[in-house]
């Protein structure tokens, strides 16, 4: 059995051409494409291909990566026209002889394939992605049932790779737009029953470049590597805001557990 599983492992199966977009801010040049021939083994991802180029062909190719297993969300790039994590895209599964690698769109480029994601983090911060409570130091735990957790659990899977902002057609022109990621995170914290910050977030979410600039093109959900489905979150948030303008949204009160001396420390 082991022989079959490892059949073809380590052999060069074919050679593909990587067409990588290069841009160096220190040289006063426009971005250009450069081609590299990469021998492909079984199980090789696009990120492996880029690292092969870096090791053997051109040391100056820059890319951001960390975990190589689709958890850190560092290596989002446009591969053959669609946003994908380079570490999760098998070269053989693409089934193409030419692989075009672009940096993510709608972000400033630091170098080659490295986008500047500060816009993403700024937008994420602006929706206050933390639980807001009135009391400064809670005396007891907030009880949450598994059903209440299911209401927002899928949006917690976001790894902040920023590929939804690159795919979003509104973000392609509107740099002030919050983007699917932060809007879905806003929904995640509003529906959390421990949270009390709906009115604090309302000004950001319901602004001129907030939730209403989404036109449900679904591109964000289409490219999301974790299946977070940000488009669903945005539409549900919009439902919440529409009903809020007629009937004021009532914050869910989490039931409090027994009072304790210290919740943060070990008791």
């Amino acid at each position: 059995m082991q022989e079959i599983a490892l059949k073809g492992f380590g052999e060069v199966l074919k050679t593909v051409t990587f067409r990588v977009r290069r841009y160096d801010p220190e040289k006063r040049e426009l971005a250009k494409y450069m081609e590299y021939k990469v021998p492909v083994q079984m199980g090789m991802t696009v990120l492996d291909g880029i690292l092969y180029i870096k090791e053997h062909l051109d040391h100056s190719v820059s890319a951001r990566y960390s975990c190589r297993m689709g958890i850190c969300g560092s290596c989002g790039m446009i591969i053959n026209g669609k946003e994908q994590l380079a570490c999760q895209t098998q070269i053989l599964e693409l089934n193409k002889d030419l692989i075009k690698v672009d940096p993510m769109g709608n972000y400033p480029i630091v170098k080659d394939l490295v986008p500047d994601l500060s816009k993403l983090f700024r937008n994420h911060g602006s929706v206050k992605p933390y639980i807001i409570r009135e009391e400064e130091e809670p005396k007891s735990e907030f009880i949450q049932t598994p059903e209440q957790r299911e209401e927002y659990a899928m949006f917690t899977d976001c790894i902040l790779c920023g590929m939804c902002l690159s795919a979003c057609p509104t973000n392609a022109t509107d740099e002030l737009y919050l983007g699917p990621q932060s809007l879905a995170q806003g929904y995640r914290y509003i529906t959390d029953n421990r949270d009390m910050g709906f009115n604090e977030r309302l000004n950001v979410l319901d602004s001129k470049h907030g939730v209403w600039r989404c036109h449900f093109s679904g591109a964000c959900s289409e490219v999301c590597p974790k299946g977070v489905d940000p488009a669903l979150g945005v539409q549900l948030l919009r439902q919440l805001l529409t009903s809020n303008s007629f009937v004021k949204y009532k914050q869910k009160e989490a039931t409090k557990g027994p009072e304790r001396k210290s919740v943060s420390g070990v008791s």
Binding site: Y23, P25, A31, G81, K82, P103, M104, G105, N106, Y107, P108, I109, V110, P115, D116, S166, A167, P169, A172, T173, E175, H215, F216, S217, G218, A219, E222, V223, A231
Partner: peptide
């Protein structure tokens, strides 16, 4: 750094995403 905005021309590039993206354009 350079801005890498896709711009309004990306309305006409709904390929590779899905039917919703086509319908948006």
């Amino acid at each position: 750094t350079i801005e890498n905005k896709k711009g309004w021309i990306s309305w006409f590039n709904p390929f590779r995403y899905g039917t919703d993206r086509w319908m948006y354009s």
